[in-house]
């Protein structure tokens, strides 16, 4: 009888599969992704390498000595132990994070703006006691600008009523408000000493959300030539909530990582983070094969460092509040070995 390997499902559940079943899932994962994102399937040699990584009972795995990559983190620390500066310190000193990110618990630029003076003070003090590059991060989070949270009519209410033109106008209005807020926070944080600004989970509210991020990045780059600008995406595919928005003449709705990266680089980012979602009903082998297939064209063409989002529910990591170490390390190693990533 074929040996059983302990592995995980996309929801984190521990299951047993045979090497043949894992291999079949890897093949099915790359095939599904190639078809959906119109990219090439992984090669046979790449699938062989993934089989080696996943057909193992080891609790942990890692890349080879010398193949280490840079580890950046969105939102360092739980904010439950000591102060937020302590969070940054232990990420640097205990977890050996390569870059650190101070964040406001209400992780969006709009609420961060309201407490910016306080955030600046904390950032300034944090810079004194940490050595790793330290930045500030939040989400563009376009939905916060709609009624009842914000001033703009709510397109999620307008669309079901068939009021498409008004819905589009509302999104366009929100884009400008969000971009203004992001630029405001970036300016204030540069004054407080940041090395980089992170626009995390960009595109969460669709193409208008992504456009707000790109517009903000373009303005920040023009004002601060040496500032690091990191963008992390919300999902693999830009949703067309508006449907007609363009940046630099390119329609945003429906963009996959390769084209997301190109536009982000054009706007002026220094680090781009693709996010590829996890299917909870499939094994992690299937999910990782899918993730790598979608991310590969982007990594091959990248002109800026690519830090794949490898966290709960993205990058082949299970959708579970406590992602198991055996799953995260396999997903990370697979991504580094196959994609030759710059970071995670």
């Amino acid at each position: 009888m074929e040996a059983k390997i302990r592995t995980r499902m996309g929801d984190g559940a521990l299951v047993e599969m045979t090497p043949a079943q894992i291999r079949a899932d890897l093949e099915a994962g790359t095939l599904a992704a190639a078809k959906r994102s119109k990219s090439a399937e992984l090669t046979s040699a790449e699938l062989d390498h993934l089989s080696e990584i996943f057909c193992s009972n080891s609790r942990f795995t890692g890349v080879d000595i010398g193949d280490e990559v840079v580890l950046s983190y969105d939102g360092c620390g739980s904010q439950d132990l000591g102060t937020r500066i302590n969070d940054l310190q232990y990420y640097e000193q205990y977890l050996c994070a390569d870059s650190l990110e101070l964040y406001h618990h209400d992780y969006s630029y709009k609420p961060a703006k309201a407490v910016m003076a306080f955030e600046q003070d904390v950032m300034r003090q944090a810079q004194f006691v940490t050595t790793a590059p330290l930045g500030y991060g939040a989400m563009p989070d376009l939905g916060l600008y709609t009624v009842p949270d914000g001033p703009v009519p709510n397109w999620s209410q307008l669309l079901p009523l068939g009021r498409i033109a008004e819905s589009r106008a509302a999104q366009e209005e929100a884009v400008e408000l969000a971009a203004d807020d992001i630029v405001y926070v970036a300016d204030e944080m540069v004054e407080a000493g940041i090395e980089f600004i992170d626009l995390d989970t960009a595109g969460a509210a669709g193409d208008a959300d992504f456009l707000a991020a790109l517009k903000a990045i373009e303005r920040i780059r023009a004002r601060h030539p040496d500032l690091g600008i990191q963008i992390g995406m919300a999902g693999e595919f830009v949703l067309g909530m508006h449907g007609e928005l363009e940046y630099d003449g390119v329609r945003l709705a429906g963009l996959w990582p390769l084209d997301q990266m190109k536009l982000a680089a054009k706007a002026g980012v220094t680090i781009y983070g693709p996010a590829i979602n996890t299917n909870t009903g499939k094994s992690i082998a299937w999910n990782v094969a899918r993730t790598l297939t979608i991310a590969k064209p982007c990594c091959e063409a990248a002109t800026v460092p690519v830090h794949l989002n490898g966290g709960m529910g993205v990058g082949g990591v299970p959708m579970h509040v406590l992602p198991a170490g055996d799953a995260t390390c396999r997903a990370s190693r697979a991504a580094v070995d196959i994609l030759r990533l710059d970071g995670l």
């Binding site: 302990r6 009972n57 609790r59 795995t61 890692g62 890349v63 080879d64």
Partner: peptide, 13 residues
């Protein structure tokens, strides 16, 4: 082995 990290099997923690 050239691996940067190694570990026991799942369940042997």
């Amino acid at each position: 082995s050239s691996a940067r990290f190694t570990a026991v099997d799942i369940g042997d923690e």
